[in-house]
């Protein structure tokens, strides 16, 4: 564990907590894409399949449970909780996210580090996570103005993988044989997708107004 990875995990945790805070306290999911949340639930479900078979550390297992629990409960809230569901912007959240799942699965079957069931699904989760934010970014374009909590959520979610890139650079220079092109490229693509959001976020943030 290094400071970059810890900062990345904490940023990721913060993004999930901000979203849960928004949905649970003000009972609103305005501006949040249910489709992105569904993709993230699939990402965690396929990435953490080894949660019971391979124990890394208490921290690792605890964080996996937090991410699994929070992503599925956010989907549940947005789908079935009456008050929250009412604030869901169904007409605008129309990105065909299922069209992202199949290509990621095919790509994982073609490009992976080891051809085993767990490894292919793990690689699938990497590819899917790289594009999972697309429905949210499209929704953002359509709803123009979003509240600060949603803006913070997206900012933290984009930032965590950027910190992971610093973690991979650090581990590449400090650990022999630590080379994982698939993880690195997927992480880079994921972070680059946030580039224009970061641009507007900092513009607004410096301006001191909400994120538009």
């Amino acid at each position: 564990m290094n400071i970059f990875r810890l900062a990345g995990d904490m940023t990721h945790l913060a993004s999930v907590l901000v979203l849960l805070l928004k949905i649970h306290t003000i009972k609103s999911c305005a501006g949040v894409s249910l489709r992105t949340q569904e993709l993230y639930a699939i990402v965690f479900a396929t990435r953490y399949l080894d949660i019971f078979t391979s124990f890394v550390s208490v921290y690792n297992t605890f964080m996996k449970l937090v991410f699994l629990g929070s992503s599925f409960s956010i989907v549940w809230y947005m789908r079935y909780h009456k008050a929250v569901h009412r604030t869901y912007d169904r007409e605008q959240d129309t990105f065909r996210h299922w069209f992202l799942v199949l290509p990621c699965l095919v790509l994982a079957l073609l490009i992976h580090e080891k051809f085993t069931f767990l490894e292919v699904l793990w690689t699938f989760s990497l590819y899917l996570e790289a594009v999972a934010i697309l429905p949210q970014l499209v929704l953002l374009q359509r709803t123009r103005n979003i509240d600060n909590l949603t803006g913070q959520y997206i900012f933290l979610l984009g930032g965590y993988r950027g910190l992971y890139i610093l973690n991979w650079i650090y581990r590449y220079f400090t650990e022999p044989h630590f080379v994982h092109w698939i993880t690195w490229i997927a992480g880079l693509v994921q972070t680059l997708l946030y580039a224009d959001f970061f641009y507007y976020y900092f513009l607004r943030f410096i301006g001191g107004r909400g994120v538009e």
């Binding site: 990875r5 995990d9 990721h12 080894d50 391979s54 890394v56 550390s57 690792n60 964080m63 996996k64 991410f67 580090e113 080891k114 793990w122 992971y164 973690n167 650990e175 044989h177 630590f178 994982h180 993880t183």
Partner: peptide, 10 residues
């Protein structure tokens, strides 16, 4: 163990 190292990340 290298494989394990890769999957020691979230």
């Amino acid at each position: 163990h290298i494989q394990q190292r890769l999957h020691d990340e979230l």
